[in-house]
Each structure stands twice: as structure tokens, then as C-alpha cells.
Design a protein around this nucleic acid. Structure first.
Length: 561
RNA sequence: UGGGGCGUCGCCAAGCGGUAAGGCACCGGGUUUUGAUCCCGGCAUUCGUAGGUUCGAAUCCUGCCGCCCCAGCCA
């Protein structure tokens, strides 16, 4: 990892706990784990957890396991386990040999369940789901004990065995922990730990008819792997007593410590896998890797770098208060990274023709541009300059305000790395008012952009040769939702808050020739516009190169649309 | 009207009884052949609120207010 952080940021509360446990000798090494359920693609929220768990391992000379929490075959799939591994690797983390599956523990988990039954701590219940809900009680009233709660150990053992054998239909029997129906914590009211599920599991096939529940599986998986610190999100705080109960009751040799932290929320997007799935399946976006999605694969396709995502996770920190981080923070990280890494190129997104009246008709002159203005080592490239050019439609105004630094009647501007040009005239469609072409004259003495007399011009604009430029398609991506929190108003479906302008496809854009040399996924800065990458998935479409806008450049010039 | 959490600048976030770090955003100024980058400078007498303890509190105690999570045979 190319991350040289010498910063002395204070430790977050989790790293403090780990530091203390290491110093006190409670543990000689920290072992964490990232435990995704393979039922969807990873998103930036998972990146926070990945950076935390793998980050801790890296900083404390510990180990971080990758463990798939695959206990619900009805929702899980191998395609997800594959994409998850790809994304974790891409983010720059390595689990080495430490890749595990909760499903690998099914036999042991079954044996533990038998132990629980034998010690009188679990029973087979035949209440229907509806009855179970009634017996559970409410937030303010205690629950009632199941009539099946006091079956004999023998009977429970036999029934559980038959559940395993597939003798009963789904929903007819469950194995429940015998805890306390009067507990104010609903999770402790005799929670279900095994249910019958006649589904094909992506790893164990049809071996099992019963599958363990999360609360029962997670703590035991952590214990089996010798996890020291089990880091999860805030909504699991109420589950911690159950996590501890299972391990205490089974008198396991080790007892990992569960610590919860706040999950990530960002403005102008949604984070839940359920909602992301809904957008994918409803075709509101073009799949899990749509560049507007905050999935890892979407960010990758958008042009975000692993380092920018890691830095983002580092700057937001770890805490316990619900928060919603401004999208600007993420954008700031990718700008910081790409400002250093991306070479500069010119591309005219919305072209209007400029004709240099005093430039020879067929002449093609080469001018040179720096690949990176702050880094001479990045070298230079050649740019063809011709009589007919394209500039940005935005860069010309018939009646510009005084602070406008671009082209207009009577004005002279610099064509970046080219020549100084002076406005001569322009022609427009009298019907529509559309500017058709702009005539200028150039100063032959100003090649490269500076005049011998040292005169200053107010602005520098980018351009592309009309004859040598190459047509490209550019996807202008913007925030996916129109509002900061699409889930704030419970009466409005979040899908109604989608930003209809989140993707604008520009088909008339024209780029400097050097742009065709890029590799798919490679990032560049289109000067004065932003950072773009050649689409890694579909670099060419209709025989034209396709670019994705990662993020705009910061713009202190208020655009008067 | 049960339980579990959380409340420090517009957004995050340090702070762990000794007198409010940092980042983003924002506002000034400088450099600049990207209105970018970069560089300087500004930006909470105040820590949800009301009391109490203390020489001294954002940090300890009490009450109140606000927000989030929990009644899946999901994770």
C-alpha cells in the first residue's frame, strides 16, 4: 500500500481499547475480521469497516480474517462472494490464507446446539411465526413462555435431529435458546437460533435442511477463529447480551469482545443493500457497478482510486454518533489524489467552432503541452494546432460581464499551450440565437501562449483541433439523488428523490488525439473541467471512446447558467 | 409510559477535572498559461439544557429536552 501516513492523529475509541488490551497483556495480538454476507455488492459503508478491521491488523501487527457470513442461502450467491473478494483486494487489503465461511462451521455449530439442548438451554418450538410474534410481547410488555419450552431434553434432541433430517416443512419448527421471555431486551426473549430452510446453499449444497441464525453463528464463528475484537455497527448493540450469552453458556475457551461503531451515511445517496438492490432490479441504474452507485465497483468505474477511498475512511474517523458525511468530503479525497496522479489533457465537451482567419488553411502546427504542470518529470505531449478549432460553448459570450475571463467581442484570450487569439466576428443562427462559429485572428509571435511584448490576457481556455480532434462520448455524472437525505421523509419513496440529471451523456465532445492512448480505467484531468476516466468496463461504444466524469474541478467562478 | 445508544463550529471529529486539536465547507490575501493546484491568514469565551460538586467541569453527579436503534423463522 502506497500510504505513507506519518500523521499523529489521536486513536479512535476502538483503537484505544485494542491498545489497552495489548498493553495489559490480555491479548498478545489483535485478530479482527470483516464478515460480509454474500447477498449484494460491497459499498463505501463496507469500505469503512474494511479499512477499520484490516487497518487495525496492519497497525497493530495483527491479523484480519475475511469471513463470509453465509447462513441464509435463500439470499446469497457465489457471484457476490466473488465480487466481494475482488473489491477487498482492489481496495488494497490482503487476507492472506485467512478466508473463512460461516458455512464451514455448520457441523460444529450443530454440535454446539446439541450441547445447548443437553444442558437445558435450548428447545424445539412449534409455534407458528404469527404465534411467536404474539408470544414475544411488545416493547413495553413482557412476552409469554412458549408451551413447548419445557420439553424434555430427549424430546428436544429427537426433534432437532428430525429437523436436521428434513422431516418437517419450513416454518413448522425452530430451535430456540431458553433465556428470558421477560427481558426488556427483545433479543433475549428466547431467540430463534436455528430454522428450517430447504434451500440450496452455494457451498454446502443440499446437505443441510436447517440453518443457524446470525446471532448464534456470529459469536461462535468469532470464537472458533480466535477473534479478539469483533467490530460491528451500532444496530447490533442490543445483540451483544445474546452474543455474550451464547459464549458464556457454552463455556467456550475464548470470548471475543464485540464493539460497535456508527455506520457510514453520505449526503445525496442511500447506503442500504436492500435499496441498492431495488435500484438495480428496477433498472433505475445500470447495475451494481453503475458509476453513480456508491458501491465499490461503481466507484471504481467512476474513476475513484483505492487510495482516495482509504483516505476518506481515515478522515471521517470512527465514532458512535449517527452522522451523515457530506459528499464533498469524498470528492475532496479523489481530487487530492488525482491532482497528483492524473495527467492533464484537453477535451471540449460542448464544442463551438473557432476559425483563425489569418492561419494558413492546411497547416497543421505542433505545439507542446505539459502532462502535469507541477511535475516536469511527467513530460510533454504534442498538440496539433489548425485553422479550425473547437472551444467550449461556455467560453464565448456575446455580451459578457466584466469579470468574465474568456472570449467575447473585442477580447483576446490565450488558447492553452497554443496562441493568443483576438476576436474578429461571429455568426449565429438568427432564429435560435445559437452561435455557429467565431472568427478570430492569432498572433503568430505568441506560439506557446506568450507574446514577446509581454502583454497579459485575462483568460486561458482549452481547445481541440477541428481536423485532428477525436470524437468521444462523455458521461457527465452527478449526485444520484436531489436531496441530502432521500430517506428523511418517510412518506416519500426514496426512488422519487432520484436526480433526473444524475447522468448526462455528451455525444458531441471532441478530444485531443493523445486521449486515445489511455488504458481502460485510466484517469486524466480534462483541463478546466474535472477528472475523467476511460470507462474500464466499456471503453468503446459505437466505435467511440467513452469517458466517465469522476468529479469536477473545484470551481470558484459562479456559473451563471 | 420497556431496553440500548448518541448529543462539542454549517458537516465530521479530538478532548479522558486544569482552562476548546484537526479535516471538509466558508471568508479574505498572494502565486499561477487550468477561474484548478499551491501558499498565507480568518473562522466555537464555548461544548443539547437546567442545576449541583470543585479553587477549577466539555470532562464528575442529578433532572429535563432532542435524535437514533430494537417487537425477521434477515444480517
Amino acid at each position: 500500500m502506497e500510504n505513507t501516513d506519518t500523521d499523529k492523529r489521536p486513536l479512535d475509541f476502538i483503537r484505544q481499547i485494542i491498545t489497552d488490551d495489548l498493553n495489559s497483556g490480555k491479548h498478545k495480538q489483535s485478530i479482527t475480521r470483516f464478515p460480509p454476507e454474500p447477498n449484494g455488492f460491497l459499498h463505501i459503508g463496507h469500505a469503512k469497516s474494511i479499512c477499520l478491521n484490516f487497518g487495525v491488523a496492519g497497525e497493530f501487527n495483527g491479523i484480519c480474517h475475511l469471513r463470509f457470513d453465509d447462513t441464509n442461502p435463500s439470499k446469497e450467491d457465489v457471484t457476490y462472494v466473488e465480487s466481494i473478494q475482488k473489491d477487498v483486494k482492489w481496495l488494497g487489503f490482503d487476507w492472506g490464507e485467512q478466508i473463512f465461511f460461516a458455512s464451514d462451521y455448520f457441523d460444529k455449530l450443530y454440535d454446539f446446539a446439541v450441547q445447548l439442548i443437553e444442558s437445558g438451554h435450548a428447545f424445539v418450538c412449534q409455534l407458528t411465526p404469527e404465534q411467536m410474534r404474539e408470544y414475544r410481547g411488545t416493547l413495553t410488555e413482557p412476552g409469554k413462555e412458549s408451551p413447548y419450552r419445557n420439553r424434555s431434553v430427549q424430546e428436544n434432541l429427537a426433534l432437532f435431529q428430525r429437523m436436521k433430517n428434513g422431516d418437517f416443512p419450513e416454518g413448522s419448527h425452530v430451535l430456540r435458546a431458553k433465556i428470558d421471555m421477560g427481558s426488556p431486551n427483545l433479543n433475549m426473549r428466547d431467540p430463534v437460533i436455528y430454522r428450517i430452510l430447504k434451500a440450496h446453499h452455494h457451498r454446502t449444497g443440499d446437505k443441510w435442511q436447517i440453518y443457524p441464525m446470525y446471532d448464534y453463528t456470529h459469536c461462535l464463528s468469532d470464537m472458533l477463529e480466535g477473534i479478539t475484537h469483533s467490530l460491528c455497527t451500532l444496530e447490533f448493540q442490543d445483540h451483544r447480551p445474546l452474543y455474550d450469552w451464547v459464549l458464556d453458556t457454552l463455556k467456550t475457551p475464548c470470548h471475543p469482545k464485540q464493539i460497535e461503531f456508527a455506520r457510514l451515511n453520505l449526503t445525496y445517496t442511500v447506503m442500504s443493500k436492500r435499496k441498492l438492490l431495488q435500484m438495480v432490479e428496477g433498472n433505475y441504474v445500470d447495475g451494481w457497478d453503475d458509476p453513480r452507485m456508491l458501491t465499490i465497483s461503481g466507484l471504481r468505474r467512476r474513476g475513484y482510486t483505492p487510495a482516495s477511498i482509504r483516505n476518506f475512511c481515515k478522515t471521517i474517523g470512527i465514532g458512535k454518533s449517527d452522522s451523515r458525511i457530506s459528499m464533498g468530503v469524498l470528492e475532496n479525497e479523489i481530487r487530492n489524489d488525482l491532482n497528483v496522479k492524473a495527467e492533464r489533457r484537453m477535451c471540449v465537451l460542448d464544442p463551438v467552432k473557432v476559425i483563425i482567419d489569418n492561419f494558413p488553411d492546411d497547416r497543421i502546427e505542433e505545439v507542446t503541452g505539459k502532462n502535469h504542470p507541477q511535475d516536469p518529470d511527467r513530460g510533454e505531449r504534442s498538440l496539433p494546432f489548425t485553422k479550425e478549432l473547437f472551444i467550449e460553448r461556455d467560453d464565448f459570450m456575446e455580451d459578457p460581464p466584466k469579470k468574465y475571463h474568456r472570449l467575447g467581442p473585442g477580447r483576446e484570450v490565450r488558447l492553452r499551450y497554443g496562441y493568443l487569439i483576438q476576436y474578429a466576428s461571429h455568426v449565429k443562427d438568427e432564429q435560435t440565437g445559437e452561435i455557429l462559429e467565431i472568427h478570430c485572428t492569432y498572433d503568430p509571435e505568441s506560439k506557446g501562449g506568450t507574446a514577446p511584448d509581454g502583454r497579459k490576457v485575462k483568460g486561458t481556455i482549452h481547445w481541440v483541433s477541428a481536423v485532428k480532434g477525436v470524437p468521444v462520448t462523455v458521461n457527465m455524472y452527478d449526485r444520484l439523488f436531489k436531496v441530502e437525505d432521500p430517506e428523511e421523509d418517510k412518506d416519500i419513496d426514496f426512488l422519487e428523490q432520484l436526480n433526473p440529471q444524475s447522468r448526462i451523456v455528451l455525444t458531441q465532445a471532441i478530444a485531443e488525439p493523445a486521449l486515445v492512448l489511455l488504458q481502460p480505467g485510466e484517469s486524466v484531468q480534462f483541463e478546466r473541467q474535472g477528472y475523467f476516466c476511460l470507462d474500464p468496463v466499456q471503453p468503446k461504444k459505437d466505435n467511440k471512446f467513452v469517458f466517465n466524469r469522476t468529479v469536477t474541478l473545484r470551481d470558484s467562478w459562479e456559473k451563471t447558467s
